[in-house]
Design a protein around this nucleic acid. Structure first.
Length: 494
RNA sequence: GGCGCUAUCGUCUAGGGGUUAGGACGGAAGAUUCUCAAUCUUCAAACCCGGGUUCGAUUCCCGGUAGCGCUACCA
């Protein structure tokens, strides 16, 4: 098969995402799902979710939950789903086929316990001595006697045979068969290994394209061997560069903490579409300098040709001190871009649950009025809690009265400003233009700059110096709250 | 150790035998608004090293180095 034919996409590709439910859904897995999904949706194909749960020891229900939870949050859909543990018969049948062809043999060597002494040291382990050559009769006798065995693939050792496949991302791949060990197909408890189960299912489900992490690139030679031994044409392969931490190592929960978990992004206030957008830019490029893209734009632009070969760093700070540093700055920026691109009503609806979960009572109507004031001031949904806190509380948390003092002023000026503001605001309609006009006039009358007038009021009503524009803020806050807070500020400055 | 893969600003990337090596994030400076954001302008910042091929390599080839992956009866 030539590379160009591998790159040609069939009319209706069938792709799959096949996680092993042994941990939380992490960002690398999510990206793999997304690339498969994009490929399927772009080409009008079928997206399959398959739980590769052949490792009964390590599987957990919590992990399955985590996978669904993450995919649900991202609104990523699939068309068919399967569980490998339901398909054991199929796996064993394929093993049997390969065994009957003499392409696999029983290995009665006890399973290795603990350390990998055969890997770390020197040389490559290829097979356990004596087992490959066992005659069929002898092998049958041992098996009949009830001796446990693993079934191993009999990798061709003579004739300088080469195993090859075309990878849509990494190009033509060739490896000498003699460099491939006699990997296991069946464990001694009869359970299929990942390699066997994966190939059996991929063949049975008629997967056309296997799009997965590059950590499987070398394994693919084994898979090609399995497909061919079982009489199937291997599907087409596309391996994805890995997502790595700033230290260059593969992302892992143990080493890198919660930043690798999809739910961490959700809980911090990422928009699912922004998170997907970010993940797509890691190891793939539309090659036209586009960065901010919607789901549909990604589907339209996606192609296997745009995938890179080098690992991509998720640029979070290793010892993250602030929430900002927890994430790749580009992800945060992209999120802010998507937030700004949302219609006010949409953003407001997404902000509401965040605010309510934090324990504040806000009506959808009020949230709708607050939203435009903070839309350009938050990068993550969660920041609504710090950006708009003063809208939600009855009583402002304590602040330093010194903050009330305007630029080039003193406490006396602050007091003067607040008292004057209190007077004029009592008699004005709480709408942008009248407020603007009234306060500017008041500043003029006091002989101070507008900024000097606004700052004490801002601190009085917001409890801090940095806040959304003043008139809009007052409008939403309303006259009663505004006057009450100014009164309190007057008390504090005295 | 063996085998495989990879190498452009700090990060994500575009590009490609002759380019001022482009964009974005982040950083710095400035403009601007009532503060903060947003926005705009400007600046700093990269082709891993060594050989070859060539009139000319960052680009093609080889070697080195480094990183990553696989080397389990894990996936």
């Amino acid at each position: 098969m030539s590379l160009s034919s591998a790159l040609a996409s069939p009319a209706r590709p069938r792709v799959r995402f096949a996680p092993s439910p042994t941990g939380f859904l992490h960002v690398g897995s999510a990206r793999t799902f997304i690339f498969n999904w994009l490929y399927a949706r772009h080409n009008g194909g079928t997206m399959i979710l398959r739980l590769d749960d052949t490792d009964v020891e390590r599987n957990t229900d919590a992990s399955v939950q985590s996978i669904f939870e993450g995919l649900t949050w991202l609104s990523l859909s699939w068309d068919e789903d399967y569980k490998q543990s339901d398909r054991g018969a199929l796996h064993r049948q394929m093993a049997e086929t390969i065994f009957q062809k003499g392409l696999a043999y029983r290995d009665f060597t006890p399973a290795h316990t603990g350390d990998s002494e055969k890997s770390g040291a020197q040389g490559t382990w290829l097979f356990n001595p004596g087992m490959r050559e066992l005659s069929r009769e002898e092998s049958d006798r041992h098996a009949a006697a009830g001796e446990p065995f693993a079934l191993r693939f009999r990798v061709p050792r003579e004739g300088g045979q080469l195993v090859r496949f075309a990878d849509a991302v990494y190009g033509e791949q060739v490896k000498a068969a003699v460099d491939i060990e006699d990997f296991a197909l069946l464990r001694s408890d009869g359970m299929p290994t990942y390699h066997l189960a994966s190939c059996a299912d991929d063949a049975d489900l008629r997967i056309s394209h296997i799009i997965r992490g590059q950590d499987h690139l070398t394994n693919t030679f084994k898979h090609v061997l399995i497909f061919e031994a079982a009489g199937f044409a291997p599907p087409q392969f596309a391996h994805l560069p890995l997502l790595v931490a700033p230290d260059g190592t593969k992302l892992s929960k143990r080493r890198h903490g919660p930043v690798v978990s999809v739910t961490t992004y959700r809980d911090a206030g990422f928009l699912p579409e922004a998170f997907i957008n970010f993940l797509c830019l890691l190891g793939w490029s539309p090659k036209n300098d586009r960065e901010q893209m919607s789901r549909q734009e990604l589907i339209d632009a996606f192609s296997l040709e745009g995938i890179n070969r080098a690992n991509a760093v998720v640029n979070f700070k290793e010892p993250a001190v602030t929430p900002e540093e927890t994430f790749d700055p580009k992800a945060v920026w992209l999120n802010a871009e998507h937030i700004r691109g949302l219609a006010v009503a949409d953003l407001s609806a997404r902000l509401l649950p965040v605010v309510r979960e934090a324990g504040f009572n806000v009506t959808p109507e009020k949230m709708l009025r607050i939203t435009p004031l903070i839309r350009e001031r938050i990068k993550l949904l969660r920041e609504v809690l710090t950006a708009a806190d003063f809208f939600f509380v009855d009583q402002l948390p304590p602040y330093d009265p010194a903050e009330l003092i305007p630029q080039k002023g003193d406490a006396a000026l602050a007091l003067k400003v607040l008292q004057r503001a209190r007077e004029v605001l009592a008699n004005v309609e709480f709408k942008h233009d009248p407020l603007d006009q009234t306060l500017r006039v008041a500043a003029q009358e006091l002989g101070i700059k507008a900024g000097q007038m606004f700052q004490p009021i801002r601190v009085a009503v917001c409890g801090r110096k940095n806040a959304p524009p003043l008139f809009e803020t007052l409008e939403v806050l309303g006259k009663d709250t505004t006057l009450a807070r100014i009164d309190q500020a007057i008390q504090r400055v005295k």
